[in-house]
């Protein structure tokens, strides 16, 4: 879902940078409060893992492919949506500048979609479903799927505003492809990782720490 340079007019790119900036600053503020002996190495490991898995495109039907974003997984493990915003900002910076994956002028809009929107929608859906009694693994699947799907729809609207995509067909194809990518690339992998952490090191998960305390 990385928007390349040239897909969004520069003046709109500037608006997206302005919208994303306060969220990025807030994620830095979160980190300066929350980072400790446990969370610094966790953050670094998650950054490496998210970068690697984003480089692995999984095939879906219609001659298309897609990969995990990972913001929701990071937010669940570190216990805050700000973790996902910070991590995706770092990952998108490296992808854009070093690997030409996603544009530079479109960094703001990409951080907004994959960092901020996917993470907040996904993390709070996860929290919501958990409150309704859904098991952690199932809630993480639903949250991860919703985060990716909703951010893809927002992305389609942004590209319509940019004059790049038609509205209805854009929503249809972005929605269709990412509904499938959301299941295999985002939901399943997030659920597996959270399931493994829950079984092997439940103390890492902030939600489990609170329960046992």
């Amino acid at each position: 879902m990385h928007i390349p340079d040239g897909f969004v007019p520069l003046w709109q790119c500037a608006i997206y940078f302005a919208v994303a900036a306060p969220f990025i600053l807030a994620s830095l503020r979160w980190a300066s409060k929350e980072m400790d002996e446990l969370k610094v190495p966790l953050l670094a490991t998650l950054a490496a893992g998210i970068f690697a898995i984003q480089a692995m495109n999984l095939p879906i039907p219609w001659g298309t492919s897609g990969h995990m974003v990972g913001a929701v997984m990071a937010a669940i493990i570190l216990g805050s949506p700000w973790a996902g915003v910070l991590l995706l900002t770092l990952v998108l910076l490296v992808q854009g500048f070093v690997f030409a994956d996603g544009g530079i002028t479109t960094l703001g809009v990409n951080i907004l979609n994959m960092g901020i929107i996917s993470c907040f929608v996904g993390y709070y859906s996860y929290e919501g479903f958990k409150k309704l009694g859904t098991k952690i693994v199932a809630a993480s699947f639903i949250g991860a799927w919703l985060g990716l799907f909703v951010s893809a729809l927002v992305c389609a609207v942004e590209l319509w505003l940019a004059g790049t995509f038609p509205l209805v067909e854009g929503l249809y194809f972005m929605g269709l492809y990412h509904a499938v990518i959301g299941v295999i690339g985002e939901g399943v992998i997030t659920a597996i990782v959270i399931g493994v952490v829950l079984n092997v090191r439940p103390d890492i998960l902030p939600s489990e720490r609170k329960v046992s305390a």
Partner: peptide
Amino acid sequence: ASSNPDGLESAAEKFSSAEGMDYVAFNS
């Protein structure tokens, strides 16, 4: 990894309005 276009690229291929991708802002 699949070398097929990703979701956004696939959608872009359907719309002629989404051409002009050669614009490069930075040489990675």
